[in-house]
Nucleic acid binder design. Sequence first.
DNA 1: CCTCCACTGGAAGATCGGGAAG
DNA 2: CTTCCCGATCTTCCAGTGGAGG
Length: 334
Amino acid sequence: MIQDARVLQPEFVPRDIVHRTHEVNTLTAALDPVTDGQQGETSLLYGPSGSGKTCIARYVTEQLRETVLDINTQYVNCWEDYSRFKTLYRILEGVDRSLDIHRQSTPRDELLERLREYDGPPYVVILDEVDQLEDKTVLYELYRTSGLTLVLIANQTENLFEPLNNRLASRFRTATRINFDRYGIDELVAILEPRVRWGLDEGVIQTPQLELIANAAVGDARVGIESLRVAARRAKHEGLEKITDEIIRNAVPEAESEIKQRNVDILTEHQKVVYEVITEHGEITPSDLYESYRERVDDPKSNRMVRNYLKKMENYNLVRAEGHNRGRKYHSVS
DNA sequence: CCTCCACTGGAAGATCGGGAAG
DNA sequence: CTTCCCGATCTTCCAGTGGAGG
């Protein structure tokens, strides 16, 4: 059934990109100065999740690494490294300058200074989920660091630079903007096909079934690939020769709930309680929510802290907030 | 229409845990 | 050992806001 499970991982970057050629070319052009040892243009990739932003960014930098010998690249997921310190640390890691910063008591600006001292070859840094950075000023600090070329990735660009003051924000608005749309059915099928070819035994799944997946994934490649993986795993588990339509119909919702479950797993105990209260009620007002939370835990956190938890869970797409001020209600996500 | 107040989210400072320096 | 500094987490305080309910 399964030949190479790596190909079915969402992080897998294919050798050839058959779509998004315009996006690839635009990003390649923005990074072109790097091939002459210069600093590239800052670029900003934006669009809905599963539309190929991360994949394209990694693909283009991979290509650069193959054609240009003298270059450093690093991928930073700001969702995981959401603080200024963690982001800077990860970037230093990419040029092996973080070795002796295992200690936490380094002077406040040591990390940024080290980065500015860097005088090696061009350094391309991908900042994924950049809208999740809680201290956006680090963007400006990085922008002003010579030798660094930034590739920013975000879901939407609406309020991204709002926390920066106007003068700084306007600099970022001149970045090369690359818009990603949702994949169409045919495109999604074409993305799944090579993964089927390399990842699965021959003949276990046919094109019409890939269309089923593509339809259900509504343009989200991550959901599509995850669904394919779940379907193959299920078929293998049931000892089937082929992936049936029945399996696919169940695989897509299961893939979606697995993606969600991964986010639930990383919540703290208190956050999980808040999450449980919301899912049990389906819809609840802030005061009722905090009241229930208080009853369920020993040593409850403050109301303000629970609001931070809620914000975080909203970002993780685990809960939905509706209404403003007194009309606010928290919903579970179906 | 107006008023009120539940709710949000920024700011500042306290606390905690951990690692380094004295 | 103590002291100091760090990031991370959390609390306290509060200004601003706009929907509920007269």
